[in-house]
Design a protein around this nucleic acid. Structure first.
Length: 492
RNA sequence: GCACCGGUGGCGAAGUGGUAACGCGCUGGUCUGCAAAACCAGUAUUCACGGGUUCAAUUCCCGUCCGGUGCUCCA
């Protein structure tokens, strides 16, 4: 089943397949490592992760490049304020970024180049543009791209720039540019700033040229897909197209995917609004990493998502339902034989699931058949109409689901413990929710011991003691369930 | 101001020209020592509002209202 994915460039759903028939070559704009990422950043990376995982599920290999922008105005400014070299300043944020990706189970791209390791490629690209008369140097030693050299400018963002007359409202001279819309390729070094000595002069690369140079270096001049957040459409991606296609005379990326924004309480997330959350903030409030992942990917990427704490609670409930079901499926004992109705339901669910994802990665739609199967299989089990031979096909549906959603395996405590360790190191223990401190303070082994004692008490029909243990564990956020085939527990 | 997107049950959220998936929640029931889990039943006669096209519109068209985003750095 071929994935049909919305293409910003054509404005329609286009099939996404590798042009070379082997591996899909994709480039995704990565983080600028000047601070901790916020959940809006991670929504984009999560949906790109959904894309690559679905491609894998469909048997398509991927060559995925994500850059790290480790030099830009904010980094230079902040590093200077901290009295550090930029590399020293960015290193911890880069590390934190990957820790957060791990917590959210985002798979690593095949290649993760840093901007500062690819400056020569950027310089070469600017020189190539200069030879074609599309790049020029200004008095201060900066280099700009001449938008007039690329008539198709605006084709991605569908902007009509004809109304923007030079000189009408912008003082062109002030910028030393030929046209107010021309953008920087290379910024001349200012005293004390990080810079590179190059044939272009001493300076540093502009943001747009970074991505063009690295995409071409690792994927070739023309490749399958370029992805990023919706805010990058203009000017970043528009500029990438202009400079890349001018230089090579070939189409840059065939397909453009843009993930829409995450809003908080109906508004864009911003520090000034006081609705700005990092992943760490949420983990320390006691929300599970898996719930954050599920909540952020359950709204399809082409719709803005309105983030609320309630959405995390909802996702937690949904995950519990799925995990409980899977454990019933794997540990339950079922009579020999098979129920054809269950087999048919599993097959139908699997097909509906894949079809939904193939339709522009409709994650909301894809969940439905999985939950429908959970209900019908649970019903069959309750009625004793679920047989041993049905187990495999139902598990297969869960496996397909989890190949993309990746929330069934409980690894939440790991991520939470790492966040707690970080909070301790950076003096943020005051932000930790009290319930979380309690829950994290008890080990699995201690819980097992108490649960075993309770099972024994129940056997003796000592319900007072049994209830006492249950209440004691509940205080630490541990829930006990007495099922027919034994007692199990979970962390809330 | 210009452009774009959206308004579906208590909340989140799919979807379709022929009378509304799924998740969470809530109510009642079954089961259970009690719970939890699970299951069953009930939770939108209706998809912002007004008009139009059609045998038929939540789904297409026009208008109104409301909300959001972009046009500068931003995932």
């Amino acid at each position: 089943m071929t994935l049909r994915l919305f293409n910003t460039l054509t404005g329609q759903l286009d099939p996404l397949t590798p042009a070379d028939g082997r591996a899909l070559r994709m480039y995704a704009c990565g983080p600028t490592v000047y601070d901790f990422g916020h959940i809006g950043n991670f929504r984009t990376f999560l949906h790109i992760d959904v894309l690559r995982r679905f491609l894998h599920l469909s048997g398509i290999q991927v060559r995925h490049v994500m850059n790290i922008t480790d030099v830009d105005d904010k980094i230079i400014r902040n590093a200077a304020a901290a009295g550090q070299p930029i590399g020293e300043y960015t290193a911890p944020f880069e590390e934190a970024f990957f820790e957060d990706l791990d917590a959210l189970r985002v798979e690593r791209p095949e290649l993760i180049p840093r901007a500062t390791d690819n400056v020569p490629q950027m310089v070469a690209l600017i020189q190539r543009l200069e030879k074609q008369g599309a790049a020029y140097r200004t008095e201060d030693g900066s280099w700009y791209f001449r938008i007039a050299a690329f008539p198709a400018y605006g084709k991605l963002s569908k902007k009509d720039l004809s109304g923007m007359e030079d000189g009408a409202r912008v003082d062109v001279d002030e910028y030393e540019k030929d046209s107010s819309r021309d953008f920087a390729l290379w910024k001349a070094a200012k005293p004390g700033e990080a810079s590179w000595e190059t044939p272009l002069g001493r300076g540093r690369p502009g943001w747009h040229i970074e991505c063009s140079a690295m995409a071409m270096e690792y994927l070739g001049e023309s490749f399958d897909l370029h992805a990023g957040g919706e805010d990058l459409i203009f000017p970043h991606h528009e500029n990438e197209i202009a400079q890349s296609e001018t230089a090579t005379g070939r189409p840059f990326a065939r397909h453009w995917m843009h993930v829409r924004f995450l809003l908080v309480d109906g508004r864009k997330m911003a520090k000034s609004e006081g609705n700005f959350y990092t992943l760490r903030d949420l983990l320390l409030k006691g929300y599970r990493a898996s719930a954050i992942r599920l909540a952020l990917i359950s709204v399809p990427y082409r719709h803005p998502i309105n983030f609320t704490f309630e959405s995390l609670t909802d996702a937690t409930g949904a995950i519990d339902r799925l995990r409980t079901f899977r454990s019933r499926l794997t540990s339950g004992e079922f009579p020999e034989g098979q129920n054809p109705a269950v087999e048919a339901a599993a097959l139908a669910a699997r097909e509906a699931y894949r079809a939904a994802l193939a339709n522009d990665l409709n994650t909301a739609d894809a969940r439905a058949p999985v939950f429908e199967l959970v209900r019908s299989a649970n019903t069959a089990m309750d009625k004793g109409e679920f047989f041993a031979a049905n187990r495999e096909s139902v598990l297969q549906v869960l496996a397909d689901f989890d190949r993309v959603f990746d929330v069934l395996e409980d690894r939440d405590l790991e991520a939470t413990r790492r966040a707690l360790a970080w909070a301790e190191k950076s003096g943020r223990m005051a932000d930790v929710a009290p319930e979380l401190k309690a829950s994290a303070s008890i080990s699995d082994a201690e819980i097992d011991t108490l649960v075993a004692e309770r099972v024994e008490a129940k056997k003796q029909r000592n319900f007072t003691r049994a209830d006492q243990i249950r209440a004691q564990l509940a205080e630490k956020g541990i829930v006990i369930e007495d099922a027919k085939d034994g007692t199990r527990w979970k962390r809330k």
